[in-house]
């Protein structure tokens, strides 16, 4: 279970998160919606430990562990995965090399045996097939020259390989065509189960038709201003943030 209490954080001296309280019980998928610049990505970076995103108060624990005290790679090994809003390009680093290095780094950190090239390739091919990704994506540089949609699918491939217990998906649906959206949603749904929870950040109700969330939270001005069931997303879509906030 992810438990965030009174979390405040600043970026470049400017306070962005102004006291977040949020609980995502194990096995649940929660959606976070909110206007541009409200702090959704900031929350995802704070939880995953990005430099420059400074926690000024509050706590965040995952299965009782104080994640804010951990290095980013330790959080990853503990099962936290962030699908980036803007996936980063790594020129010259083959996608396969990257995925294998990451997978083995996490396995090693957890005291599991590392996969050799053959074992890895078998696993990767299997997962890629499920995501309808062409195999040559493995050979290309990480995200280099990938289309917007390919980058997002590559994030989901990484998630499928790394098998996190807590995934934060930051606008993974943006820029996806309908078919890709379904594939990505299937990828997430396939992971749902007692050992998996997710925070799905999105602007669109459409995604939530495919990934039906247990709860929906509205983040505005660095605070969760409203929470509710899946219907809240529909309400937002129909009325806009201002009306929902006024009613809150």
């Amino acid at each position: 279970m992810l438990k965030i209490e009174g979390l405040t954080a600043e970026v470049e001296g400017k306070q962005i998160l102004k006291g977040i309280d949020l609980e995502v019980p194990t096995g649940e998928v929660h959606a976070i919606m909110g206007p541009n610049g409200s702090g959704k990505s900031t929350l995802s970076y704070v939880l995953s430990g990005r430099e420059g995103y400074e926690v000024t108060g509050g706590t965040a624990t995952f299965n009782g562990q104080d994640i804010l005290a951990m290095e980013p790679e330790e959080r990853a090994a503990a099962g936290l995965f962030l699908a980036f809003q803007y996936p980063v390009e790594l020129p010259g680093v083959g996608n396969a090399t990257f995925l294998r290095t990451a997978l083995n780094a996490q396995r090693k950190a957890r005291g599991e045996s590392e996969l050799d090239a053959m074992q890895f390739l078998k696993l990767a091919r299997e997962r890629m097939k499920a995501l309808a990704m062409p195999e040559d994506m493995l050979k290309r540089g990480v995200n280099v020259g990938f289309s917007g949609g390919e980058k997002k699918r590559n994030e989901i491939l990484q998630m499928a390989l790394l098998k996190p217990s807590l995934a934060i998906l930051d606008e993974t649906d943006s820029g996806l065509d309908i078919d890709a959206l379904k594939i990505v949603a299937d990828g997430v749904n396939a992971m749902r189960g007692p050992g998996f929870s997710a925070l799905v950040i999105t602007h669109y109700q459409r995604l939530l038709d495919y990934i039906v969330p247990d709860r929906v939270h509205v983040l505005m001005g660095g605070r969760i201003v409203k929470s509710g069931g899946p219907d809240l997303a529909k309400e937002l879509e129909a009325q806009g943030y201002a009306a929902v906030q006024a009613a809150a």
Binding site: G49, F84, Q106
Partner: peptide, 8 residues
């Protein structure tokens, strides 16, 4: 950060 988020 991207690499470290993946566990490196």
């Amino acid at each position: 950060f991207y690499c470290r988020q993946r566990g490196l």
